[in-house]
Amino acid sequence: MEDPNVPVRIMRSPLGRAQGLGAARHGVGHWWAQRVTAVALLPLSLYFVASVLILAGATQARMAGFMAKPWNTVLFLCLIAALFYHLSLGLQVVIEDYVSHEGKRRGGIMLVNGLIVLSALACAVSVLKLAF
C-alpha cells in the first residue's frame, strides 16, 4: 500500500512492518490468531449447530454412535481446538480492557486460561472416549 502524499517509497509490506512490534514483541500474532480461529469457526460452528439438531433428545448409545464416525470425531476435535483457542484470545482482551489493576489482570487471565485448558481437555477426552 503506497501513500501518494509520502514521497518515500516503503518497500516492506504492511504486514512485514507490523510483525514483531508491540510491548511483548508478538506484534500481530494475537490479532491474527483471533482471525484465523474465527474463520475456522465459521464452518465448524455451523457443523456444531447441525450436529446438535441431529442429537436432539438422543440416548448415550446414539451419541456414541455419532462420535464414533471418524469425520465426526475429527470435526468435533477441530471445533474444540478452534473454539477454546478463540475463547482464550477473546476473554484475554476483555480482561485486559476492563481490569486496570495489573496483578488482578494477570491473575484473571491465568485463571480463565486454566479453566479453558481444563474444559478443552475434558471435551476432547470425552469425544475420544465416546469414539473409541
Binding site: M63, A64, L87, S119, A122, C123, S126, L130
Partner: peptide, 12 residues
C-alpha cells in the same frame, strides 16, 4: 462452553 463441556463429559 461450560454447558457443552458438561454435556460431553456426561455422555462419556
Amino acid at each position: 462452553t461450560l454447558l457443552l463441556t458438561l454435556w460431553l463429559v456426561c455422555a462419556a
